[in-house]
Amino acid sequence: MRILVVDDDSLAGEITAAYLEALGHEPVIALDAMEAASQLDTLSDIALIVSDMHMPLINGLALLEMLREQGITLPFILLTGDEPPTNATQQPGLTACLQKSADLDVTLAHAIEQAFKA
């Protein structure tokens, strides 16, 4: 399926995209929230969003809020370099909050599976 990857660090975005590709998905990368919004406008088949937490101006959680305000309810997975903050994991509409690590492929696969199970 088509997955939107949002990360201001292009290399980090490509790593995430590589993992998703290996899982058989079709990732598209956006470098910030604005680009993410325009990708969502143009590509109607995006089924899930994987976003970095720390980005300048609009961070991952703010992006999630922004999308929800616009009525976009796609599953949303947040990536962070830190231990997932506890208040973030309770954010309504957030599918999962994953820590960036070398086993991101496993945790991502699991989170995506969970997102579509519900």
Partner: peptide, 21 residues
């Protein structure tokens, strides 16, 4: 400060993803 912070933060995340612990 924000730039510096973001650099180290992203280095941490990317480094970990790539296995450069």
């Amino acid at each position: 400060a924000p730039d510096l912070h973001r650099f180290f933060h992203s280095l941490k995340g990317t480094g970990r993803s790539l296995g450069f612990e």
